[in-house]
Every structure is written in structure tokens, then in C-alpha cells.
Design a binder for these strands. Structure first.
Length: 431
RNA sequence: GGAGAGAUGGUCGAGCUGGUUGAAGGCACCGGUCUUGAAAACCGGCGAAGUGCAAGCUUCCGGGGGUUCGAAUCCCCCUCUCUCCGCCA
């Protein structure tokens, strides 16, 4: 949620910021209505002040033995007038809130305008493996090594689902263990959260109202009974940002650093592409998500910490990858800045996102009413929220298979994972 | 699933026979006195949001609606929490 004060006072700056996302916003109507709304507020408040004052007089008049029937009649009229004005005002407020809720975050100053095509690669680690044989596709490798059962996954859940089997399941779990161990060591607090969340969670995260169709709804349809419906989280971020919704934290508690493992459930409607066969894009995938609540002045440093942590994880696996700084239009709605970590997938001849690190600044804090009180300070301030995957396994797993494959179709297990694989160093084809 | 109790400011907790209660009191926190320093004690301050240049005014006692001139207080609906019973892991 954007600060309405900012829209009023620094309109041009807001317009320019949103333009970087490719949005042409004209606040003229909005501001005119806001003006009207505020006028109405002051009008109705004058009426209410009068009501309160007279209302306090009535018991005194009664006590003095005076006849108050005339006053009561006037008050009735006044009350009706207030009620009418309040209804108009409520409608205006709702309209305004709805409009504000639909506006995305303003990109940070140094984030360039435009979409994906303007993303900049800011770091490259390792290099593309040089195979002296015909490298295999990860789907083939996974099947030959008995790691993934795609056919039965589809039988159980349909397109977009797979089953980790045997060593594949162990390898997947080893990855998660590696992430978890690292985060704990780095002082992040582990959380296991509900996977079924209520509407307010999606709103605070910034997924709703706009992207309510991208998630799986459990009981009712959104809009039917929005406040009592639940959806499966598309990322643990949605849960973690809501941990402190409607809370006021003490400055001394900040920064708060969390991480959570959850499967992520996404509809991915209409996004299936042939080149993404396998586990590149599924309806359910495993991810460990890092999250921070910080003071405003600390969030840029926290962002760097999160990016560095994600980098270190991929680096620790010995994989080749790059880091991209996203252009404004490629940052999701809630985020003012995002860096993606993209791992090399040989079969796709492309880099695919394994982590997305973002700074939401105060955008989510406003939506979720998450504030903090400075030591000795009087006013509560919105804090900043940041998140970063650390990591999603669904692209790391194929990257390991493809980048670490040998001529005979076996795959080297990254060293850091071996302790969770019973010391195993290599996975060999079963047939 | 059935029955009952409850939801008040950062926190705990009064008020709930409708009208100086936006809300006592405790704790926490901030400032001061005292002290070599600290603690204790004492004195003072201390909810949030909206609107306005400001003084101020308005709103908020889980959420929504209603009754009334006037609602934290009365009525209805919803959500959540707790206790008991049943069922299940």
C-alpha cells in the first residue's frame, strides 16, 4: 500500500515511479475525490461535534427539571443527517481504499524502467560446464537414476505434479536440510507455518486483490465470503509477513530474521511451456524462504545480506549461476527492489530463477499494519519487510542433475549434501 | 460436532443497572528528585488513527449491523480464544 500523504504531496514523483513499471497513472480524479472526501469528513465531524455537545447537555437539562422534548426532536433530525453523510463517506472511503490497494509499490531510485528485457546481470559465478559427450535432459536423468516418477505424479495430481522417489526424495530432503542448517547457523529463526491462510494474509503480502486467481482456494471462492475463505500459500513469504500483522514491535526486537520451509502451491494457469517439462514449473514445489523485519534505515543492508545468503547457498552446491537485478516492470507488485539468482540449466540453454530476493520497503507493512516503536520515541512507524528464497529446490534439483552429470549418465552429489545421503558421492543409473 | 465463558490501550486488568469512562488501577516505558553509580522510594508524563497551518475536532473498547437524542455498556450476526462433553489422530 502506498502512503496517501505521499501521493498528495509528491504526486509527480509517485507517477514517475509507477511509470517505470509501465503504468500510466493519472491521479487527477483520485485527488479531486480525496479533496471532496476530506471536505465531507470535516462537515460530518462538525455535525458530530454538535451532537456530542448537545447530548451531554440533555441529562443536565433533565436534572434541572426542564422539558427536553424539543431538543430531542432536533437531535433526531441531526442524527439522521449524520447517518446519511456517514453512508456517503463510507462509500468514498471504500472506493479510495480499493484503488490504493490496487497500486503496486514504487521501484527504488536506482531500479531501471521497463520489463524483463531490461534486467541486468550483475554477477556471474562459475562457468557453463563443458561436456565432452552429449549431455542428457534432467527428465531423462531423473528417470534413469530412479529419482523422480513423473508418470505416477501425473496419475495422482495431474499435469504439473511429480513424485520424488527413493534417492530422489533423499536428495530433495538433503537440499532442504542444507538450507535449514545454514539459516540456523546464520541466526535465522526456523518456523513451520500453516499452509492454509486467510484472506487478510494474502492482502498484507500484496497478492490480493489482484492475484487472487493465482492461488488455490480451499472452501469458498474469493468474493463469496472473502473473510472466511482459505487458500494454499503460494510461498512461505505469505505466511511470514503476517506473523506480526497488526502488531507494534519494539525497536530493540529488530531486525527479526525468520525462515520457513513449506511446499508452495500455485495454479500457474496457462503458463505451461514445452521447454519447461519436468520440474521447472509445477503446481507444488518445495522452498525455504527467508524473511526479515527491519528498521527503515537498515533494510538496504538487510537486502544485501539476503542476496549474499542466497548466493552462498548456490555457490556451496558448486553450481554455475548468475545474479540479475530486475527492472521495475519485472519486480512483483509489492516489491521496490528485486534481485534474482538464476542457475544454469544446460538443456534449456538458459538460466532459471532459484531465488528471488526483494525489499518491499514499507509497502507490506502498510497493508498489514506492522509497525515498531523507536526507543524513547512517541510515534509508531511502519517497518520494512524483506524476503528471499533460500532456496527453491525445483530448479536446483534439475541443475544439479544436468550440471553434475557424467558420460555414463550418473550424477555427482554436491559435497555439502553427502552427509544427508549416507556419505554417498555419486548416483548411478539403476538399469 | 454439542454446551458454556470470554475478547477493553505496549501489556495485565476494572468498567458492562446506557449520559464528565477514551476508558480506573498495576506493570512496562520516558523525564525528574534522591544517590559516588545503580536499585528502591517519591514526583510528573505516557494509546492509536483521521482531519486541520494551528487551537482543536472526530473516530476507535475483536469485526459487522441494529436500538437510542446518546452505546465499551442493550439486541442480532460473524470471527477468534478458553473450559467441559463427544469424536478422531
Amino acid at each position: 500500500m502506498l502512503d496517501i500523504q505521499k501521493i498528495r504531496k509528491e504526486t509527480d514523483q509517485v507517477v514517475r515511479g509507477l511509470a517505470k513499471r509501465g503504468l500510466k497513472i493519472d491521479f487527477t480524479d483520485f485527488l479531486a475525490k480525496d479533496e471532496k472526501r476530506r471536505q465531507l469528513i470535516s462537515d460530518t465531524e462538525a455535525l458530530k461535534a454538535k451532537r456530542n455537545k448537545t447530548s451531554a447537555e440533555i441529562p443536565k437539562l433533565k436534572k434541572a427539571g426542564q422539558d427536553v422534548s424539543e431538543v430531542l426532536k432536533e437531535m433526531k433530525t441531526l442524527s439522521d443527517e449524520i447517518k446519511e453523510a456517514d453512508e456517503v463517506l463510507a462509500a468514498l472511503n471504500e472506493e479510495q481504499a480499493e484503488y490504493l490497494a490496487g497500486l503496486p509499490n514504487i521501484p527504488a531510485e536506482d531500479v531501471v524502467a521497463g520489463g524483463k528485457e531490461n534486467n541486468q546481470v550483475i554477477k556471474v559465478v562459475g562457468k557453463k560446464p563443458d561436456f565432452d559427450f552429449e549431455p542428457r535432459h534432467h527428465v531423462d536423468l531423473a528417470e534413469q537414476l530412479g529419482l523422480i516418477d513423473y508418470a505416477r505424479g501425473a496419475k495422482l495430481g495431474g499435469n504439473g505434479y511429480w513424485i520424488y522417489t527413493g534417492l530422489g526424495a533423499q536428495l530433495e530432503w538433503a537440499l532442504l536440510n542444507y538450507f535449514i542448517e545454514t539459516h540456523i547457523k546464520d541466526g535465522y529463526k526456523m518456523m513451520l507455518v500453516p499452509h492454509s491462510l486467510n484472506y487478510a494474509c494474502g492482502f498484507a503480502a500484496g497478492q490480493f486483490p489482484k492475484f487472487a486467481d493465482d492461488v488455490y482456494w480451499l472452501d469458498t471462492l474469493p468474493g463469496d465470503d472473502r473473510d472466511n475463505s482459505h487458500f494454499l500459500l503460494p510461498t512461505a513469504e505469505t505466511a511470514l509477513v503476517n506473523l506480526h500483522r497488526d502488531e507494534i514491535l519494539a525497536e530493540s526486537e529488530l531486525p527479526k530474521k525468520y525462515f520457513a520451509y513449506t511446499p508452495c502451491y500455485r495454479k500457474e494457469a496457462g503458463s505451461y511451456r514445452a521447454e519447461e517439462r519436468g520440474m521447472i514449473r509445477g503446481h507444488q514445489f518445495n522452498k525455504v524462504e527467508m524473511f526479515q523485519y527491519t528498521r527503515p534505515e537498515d533494510s538496504e543492508a538487510a537486502f544485501q545480506e539476503l542476496v549474499d545468503k542466497a548466493i552462498a547457498l548456490v555457490e556451496g552446491l558448486g553450481l554455475h549461476f548468475q545474479v540479475s537485478k530486475l527492472a521495475a516492470g519485472d519486480c512483483s507488485a509489492s516489491m521496490g527492489r528485486t534481485n534474482d539468482i538464476e542457475v544454469w540449466i544446460p538443456s534449456m540453454n538458459d538460466y532459471k530463477e532459484v531465488s528471488s530476493a526483494s525489499n518491499a520497503y514499507d509497502y507490506q507493512a502498510r497493508r498489514g499494519n506492522i509497525r515498531f516503536r523507536r526507543d524513547g520515541g512517541k510515534r509508531n512507524e511502519f517497518l520494512h519487510t524483506l524476503n528471499a528464497s533460500g532456496l527453491a529446490t525445483s530448479r536446483i534439483f534439475p541443475a544439479i542433475l544436468e550440471q553434475n552429470q557424467l558420460a555414463d549418465g550418473s550424477v555427482l552429489i554436491p559435497e555439502v549434501l553427502r552427509k544427508w545421503m549416507g556419505g554417498m558421492e555419486i548416483i548411478k543409473p539403476v538399469k
